[in-house]
Design a protein around this nucleic acid. Structure first.
Length: 596
RNA sequence: GGUCCUGUAGCUCAACUGGAUAGAGCAACUGCCUUCUAAGCAGUAGGUUAAAGGUUCGAGUCCUUUCAGGAUCACCA
């Protein structure tokens, strides 16, 4: 039983014995006592004044006294207005720490016997990844790690958008302007090469439009009649018909792109268990349209188009199949949802997709539920806000994007120059130094993108946004490296920091108590982050813990402490903080160094 | 126009889901390296939580209205 549970049980008892009022312990809550008051946990009395029929102060006195008399963990209390502040004795905190310290699999909650698929990344194969994708990938990866720590079996899935008109645009431009360029001959990563032709298409296309407009066409007509656009549409038809030359070009260019993506994913530290390709799935879902018609979930209009009527759910009518019998986006999403279930028998499915598709997923999920899918209640859209630049929104066609590869490299370079400036790499081999720069650069970037509540849009200023001080990844990494250094020294001079080493310790300092309380919250935070699908919960916790540790580090001596038990305890406490930091940062996909 | 999201210190974000005097970081200023890593620690300053009503013992949090920013409402993806 945890300390909180013990206190709550005793409070419940107090109500029974003192006020003859029955209230279940698990319906009561404690909150951490604010720093400016004495105590560890606070019980708010206001809701119970009707029961006690006393002033708040007197009610608090009664309950507080009962706790001191009957609850072994409570050492004292005070009442301020309607707040009962409860102090827990030091032995209890020590035993909490003993338990934590000896716990195996720290940060791994018991198996839930549930499978969840997390779909994220989902790139288009006509251009390289950019800053927005970084937020998506880091979020998806972190959420996967967090769910896994919560005891779910997690399948990380990447649904690659490898077909369609936008892919054909790159292909058409390549045919016109490519002159047989390859990634090798051009010295260009494959995804960047495809992106180059996508941009070239747009340029040439705009030029054609202008020419047509000068000849007197409306802009709308010009867009439809521009030869390049007609070519792209023709290429899409050929691709769908399986035209050999088209398919060969498509395969070639996509294989270049995948090589490029692989390199980017490797650098990001992101991986997938399952790839889906839209070229395989884009025809799925038509059978569901039939099924929906039979079940009366969909209806057919005069021109043959099929619709879902969601007006009763507060939404509009939604097209699910065109009049000519061809699919729309949501048709294939319905099919893919079924496919995922058939492949893995998943209980839950998380879609990490930007908030511009909120409505789409609202519709999709409502449809799947109306169709009675067994996984219907387990569908979640992890909707995240866009990343804006100081100059406004990113537009890939206009080249106003922050490229993912470039940005990661910049971060690593900055980390390198910063580290050298501080003179922190004495004794590092070149290899080790390089590894450290990557750790720090990517740690800073990942932490920056993950510490914010996912649903909020965020501003990214390339010059100013990434810091290495304060609430940042490197701050936490630094805290870990500091402790690693302490542990090295402890081993070297032979400090026994096993549980026996500080057994029977009689007193702990305030700062140490604060650390124990924080350490004890780790699994609660993991559970919360899992429920909310929010890595920012973990990020915030990591910062709080590192901050509190650094205070401890500055205030209390370790090796110059003369009492052997106290010294052992402080090393053990440090070791536990390091373990927790490492484990928590892993949930964010961030590595921590032993030295920096 | 309908629907949804967001609005907290100059900037970037918190606030344990309705609790005490709204907290951190950055930027500014002041201290602390002859003891375990100063990418650190301590402190000063910075707020009408966009605005106005309401609900109650209590509201940044819930409700209503207004304002501002964004997204979305295609036989596009």
């Amino acid at each position: 039983m945890t300390i909180q549970e013990q206190i709550l049980n005793a409070i419940s008892e107090a109500f029974d014995k003192t006020f003859n009022h029955q209230v279940a312990a698990d319906s009561l809550t404690l909150q951490p006592t604010r720093k400016e008051f004495e105590g560890n946990y606070t019980f708010v009395l206001f809701p119970f004044l009707k029961v006690t029929r006393m002033k708040p102060e007197d009610s608090g006195e009664k309950i507080g006294q009962y706790l001191v008399d009957h609850c072994a963990v409570v050492s004292g209390f005070n009442v301020v207005k309607g707040f009962l502040n409860i102090s827990v004795n030091e032995e209890s905190w020590l035993s909490v720490f003993q338990n934590l310290f000896q716990k195996e699999n720290l940060g791994q909650l018991p198996p839930k016997d549930q499978k969840v698929m997390v779909e994220f990344s989902s790139p288009n194969t006509n251009k390289p990844l950019h800053l927005g994708h970084l937020r998506n990938n880091f979020l998806g990866f972190a959420v996967s790690e967090i769910l896994s720590a919560n005891g779910y079996e997690v399948i990380k899935a990447n649904l690659v958008n490898d077909r369609g008109i936008h892919i054909c645009k790159s292909m058409v431009a390549y045919q016109h302007f490519g002159e047989g360029e390859t990634p090798e001959s051009g010295g260009l990563k494959g995804d960047h090469l495809a992106g180059k032709y996508y941009v070239l298409f747009d340029k040439a296309f705009k030029k054609e439009i202008n020419e047509l407009v000068e000849k007197g066409l409306s802009e709308e007509d010009a867009k439809k009649q521009a030869p390049l656009m007609l070519e792209a549409q023709e290429m899409l038809r050929k691709w769908e018909a399986g035209d050999e030359e088209t398919v060969t070009l498509w395969k070639t260019m996509n294989s270049w792109v995948y090589e490029g993506f692989d390199a980017t994913y490797t650098k990001m530290g992101v991986s997938f268990d399952k790839y889906y390709y839209e070229s395989d799935t884009y025809l799925l879902g038509k059978n569901i349209v039939e099924e929906g018609l039979e079940k009366g979930v969909f209806f057919k209009k005069d021109n043959g188009s099929v619709w879902a009527d969601l007006t009763a759910e507060g939404l509009d009518e939604k097209l699910v199949l065109r009049g000519d019998g061809t699919s729309v986006y949501i048709t294939q999403d319905m099919g893919t949802a079924d496919l995922k279930y058939e492949d893995f028998k998943i209980n839950q499915s998380v879609y990490v997709v930007g908030n511009e598709q909120d409505y789409h997923f609202d519709v999709l999920f409502k449809i799947m539920r109306k169709l009675g899918r067994p996984y219907g209640q387990g569908l979640f859209h992890l909707s995240y806000g866009m990343v804006d630049l100081p100059t406004g929104k990113m537009k890939s066609r206009e080249g106003t994007v922050v490229d993912a590869d470039d940005l990661m490299q910049e971060m690593i370079d900055t980390a390198a120059s910063h580290t050298k400036e501080l003179g922190k790499i004495d004794g590092f081999s070149e290899e080790q130094a390089k590894e450290l720069y990557e750790m720090l650069g990517l740690g800073a970037l990942k932490y920056f993108l993950l510490k914010v509540d996912p649903k909020k849009r965020m501003l990214f200023n390339p010059q100013e946004s990434i810091e290495f001080q304060g609430n940042t990844g490197p701050f936490i990494q630094y805290s870990h490296a500091r402790i690693a250094s302490i542990l090295r020294k402890a081993d070297q001079i032979g400090v026994n920091y096993t549980a026996e080493g500080f057994d029977g310790l009689s007193h702990i300092e305030e700062g140490e108590k604060e650390l124990i309380i924080l350490l004890n919250n780790f699994e609660k935070k993991i559970a919360q982050a899992g429920e909310e699908l929010s890595p920012s919960v973990i990020a915030q916790y990591m910062f709080d813990l590192a901050k509190e540790y650094n205070r401890f580090y500055a205030e209390l001596p370790i090796f110059s402490e003369e009492n052997e038990k106290v010294r052992s305890f402080r090393v053990a406490l440090s070791a536990q903080v390091a373990k927790t930091l490492k484990s928590g940062m892993k949930l964010l996909g961030i590595k921590v160094p032993e030295r920096m």
